[in-house]
Simulated assay, not measured.
Amino acid sequence: MAGHSKWKNIQRRKGAQDAKRGKIFMRHAKDIYTAAKQGGGDVATNPALRTAVDKAKADNMPNDNIERNIKKATGTLDGVSFEEITYEGYGPGGIAVIVHTLTDNKNRTAAEVRHAFKKNGGNLGENGSVSFMFDRKGYIVINNESGELDEDVITLEALEAGADDISNEDSAYEIYTSTESYQEVLDYFTEKDFDILDNEVTLIAHNYSGLSAEEEEKMQQLIEALEEIEDVQDIHHNLEESND
């Protein structure tokens, strides 16, 4: 993880994503649907659903929308059936890319993802072609914009909570956990009233690669093209983005 800040990459694209409010609601709806489908519709007993609902509420998604998607997933409301499909491939410069989708039409989604890769200098691979380069981890970001949180103190807190690793990124601490201990660590920091900027179970690359300015621009174009696809839920890659 050294030399790479997932949080900086998130911040880099946050403004553009916030401008797409309708798309954000749609993705929250699918996240809620998936979590409720897999673990039931009760946020008290389904940590993944509780996280999805909390994120939706943080983006001001209406409660009626949240409840409707939970009901769809649990079969108490008629609706379409979504299927989770993961695509793997390479972007410009050999950057590994994993794309998670949730779709009601897999043929449409496959064509759109394939077109995005082909148009932007990438190519799709077989399942497993790049996933071995990533680990599934819990990820929590603690705000330290004030600079008042001492690194030694927060590190001890993280270890006490059961975290695996922590990284100091100037204005924030990035905490990494196993998937099994993620919710316990998140609850620990929530109960202690730390300012949590972001949290999720996600894929973390073993190593990150830099590109030339020209190749990075092409890679960013691929990411943006994939983000424009309605069915895309998450994009993971091992690009070490520059600070420019």
Results as ranks from 00 to 15, higher is better:
residue 100 H to N: 15
residue 11 Q to L: 15
residue 89 G to T: 06
residue 235 I to M: 02
residue 2 A to N: 14
residue 153 V to K: 10
residue 241 E to V: 10
residue 64 D to N: 11
residue 99 V to E: 02
residue 147 G to P: 14
residue 222 L to M: 15
residue 1 M to C: 11
residue 223 I to L: 05
residue 74 T to I: 12
residue 77 L to H: 10
residue 115 H to A: 14
residue 52 A to V: 04
residue 226 L to K: 05
residue 66 I to S: 03
residue 219 M to K: 08
residue 174 E to K: 02
residue 202 T to R: 08
residue 216 E to F: 00
residue 11 Q to K: 15
residue 215 E to I: 03
residue 154 I to W: 02
residue 84 E to C: 08
residue 180 E to S: 14
residue 173 Y to N: 07
residue 91 G to E: 05
residue 44 A to R: 09
residue 153 V to Q: 09
residue 149 L to M: 11
residue 155 T to W: 00
residue 147 G to I: 06
residue 37 K to P: 01
residue 18 D to C: 04
residue 156 L to Y: 10
residue 121 G to R: 03
residue 198 D to C: 06
residue 189 F to Q: 07
residue 195 D to E: 15
residue 10 I to F: 00
residue 105 N to L: 07
residue 161 A to H: 05
residue 97 V to G: 06
residue 126 E to P: 02
residue 42 D to C: 05
residue 88 E to M: 02
residue 175 I to N: 04
residue 151 E to V: 06
residue 51 T to Q: 09
residue 90 Y to A: 04
residue 124 L to T: 06
residue 11 Q to C: 13
residue 222 L to A: 12
residue 124 L to C: 11
residue 8 K to W: 10
residue 91 G to Q: 08
residue 115 H to P: 00
residue 238 N to M: 00
residue 120 N to P: 12
residue 56 A to P: 06
residue 54 D to K: 13
residue 221 Q to P: 03
residue 179 T to R: 08
residue 48 A to G: 10
residue 65 N to Q: 11
residue 23 K to E: 11
residue 235 I to S: 04
residue 85 I to V: 15
residue 8 K to G: 05
residue 97 V to M: 00
residue 203 L to V: 08
residue 33 Y to F: 11
residue 153 V to R: 10
residue 10 I to H: 07
residue 122 G to W: 01
residue 185 V to C: 08
residue 193 D to W: 02
residue 186 L to H: 07
residue 77 L to D: 01
residue 88 E to Q: 04
residue 8 K to R: 13
residue 161 A to R: 07
residue 76 T to I: 08
residue 61 M to R: 05
residue 165 D to V: 03
